[in-house]
Amino acid sequence: MINFTYSQLFTQIPSAPLNIIKEKLGNWDIREKNMAKKIVSLIPNQCPFAKDIYLFNKKLFTIPPLCKFNPLYEDLMMLRFRALSFLSEIGEDITPYCQ
């Protein structure tokens, strides 16, 4: 009979695919204006999942933003920031992307 504790069970789950994706996002070198614009337009500047639930014009509850639970959230935000930085370095107006 094999006995596993809770922590031993979850330390053996492979996280390699997630780490590979995180590494690719972190090492992505942005060198083209069109690619930077596409990245900035595809990744929203704030978490879009927060939602207020109303019934007959009365707020019942709020669903909090769940982006912090996404394991790639910070990596995607850093990729968007690097794309915005690249656009500002080449003299592009980035104010439309910051609203």
Score class of each variant (00 low, 15 high):
residue 32 E to L: 06
residue 32 E to I: 04
residue 33 K to W: 01
residue 34 N to Y: 00
residue 35 M to D: 14
residue 36 A to F: 06
residue 36 A to W: 02
residue 37 K to G: 00
residue 37 K to H: 00
residue 37 K to L: 13
residue 37 K to I: 15
residue 37 K to F: 00
residue 37 K to C: 05
residue 39 I to D: 04
residue 39 I to V: 14
residue 39 I to M: 06
residue 40 V to H: 07
residue 40 V to E: 05
residue 40 V to F: 07
residue 41 S to G: 01
residue 42 L to T: 13
residue 42 L to M: 14
residue 42 L to W: 09
residue 43 I to M: 12
residue 43 I to Y: 08
residue 43 I to H: 12
residue 43 I to E: 09
residue 43 I to G: 09
residue 44 P to D: 08
residue 45 N to G: 08
residue 45 N to K: 08
residue 45 N to H: 15
residue 46 Q to P: 01
residue 46 Q to Y: 13
residue 47 C to F: 07
residue 47 C to G: 11
residue 47 C to P: 03
residue 48 P to S: 11
residue 48 P to G: 15
residue 51 K to Q: 14
residue 51 K to P: 00
residue 51 K to F: 10
residue 52 D to P: 03
residue 52 D to E: 15
residue 54 Y to I: 03
residue 54 Y to V: 00
residue 56 F to C: 07
residue 56 F to S: 13
residue 57 N to G: 09
residue 57 N to P: 05
residue 58 K to T: 14
residue 58 K to W: 13
residue 58 K to A: 12
residue 59 K to N: 13
residue 59 K to Q: 15
residue 60 L to H: 04
residue 60 L to C: 09
residue 61 F to L: 12
residue 61 F to W: 12
residue 63 I to R: 12
residue 64 P to T: 01
residue 64 P to Y: 04
residue 64 P to E: 05
residue 65 P to F: 07
residue 65 P to C: 15
residue 66 L to C: 03
residue 66 L to K: 10
residue 67 C to P: 01
residue 67 C to A: 09
residue 68 K to N: 13
residue 70 N to Y: 09
residue 70 N to L: 10
residue 70 N to H: 13
residue 71 P to K: 08
residue 71 P to D: 09
residue 71 P to R: 08
residue 72 L to R: 11
residue 72 L to D: 07
residue 72 L to M: 12
residue 73 Y to M: 06
residue 73 Y to H: 15
residue 74 E to H: 10
residue 74 E to C: 02
residue 74 E to A: 08
residue 74 E to R: 07
residue 75 D to Y: 15
residue 76 L to F: 11
residue 76 L to H: 08
residue 76 L to E: 14
residue 77 M to G: 02
residue 77 M to T: 07
residue 77 M to H: 02
residue 77 M to E: 11
residue 77 M to P: 01
residue 78 M to L: 12
residue 78 M to H: 02
residue 78 M to E: 15
residue 79 L to K: 04
residue 79 L to Y: 05
residue 80 R to C: 08
residue 80 R to M: 09
residue 81 F to Y: 11
residue 81 F to M: 09
residue 82 R to D: 14
residue 82 R to W: 05
residue 82 R to I: 02
residue 83 A to E: 02
residue 84 L to T: 03
residue 84 L to G: 05
residue 84 L to Y: 03
residue 86 F to I: 06
residue 86 F to N: 05
residue 86 F to S: 04
residue 87 L to E: 01
residue 88 S to E: 13
residue 89 E to A: 10
residue 89 E to C: 05
residue 89 E to T: 03
residue 90 I to D: 02
residue 90 I to G: 02
residue 90 I to T: 01
residue 90 I to K: 06
residue 91 G to W: 02
residue 93 D to G: 02
residue 94 I to T: 15
residue 94 I to Y: 03
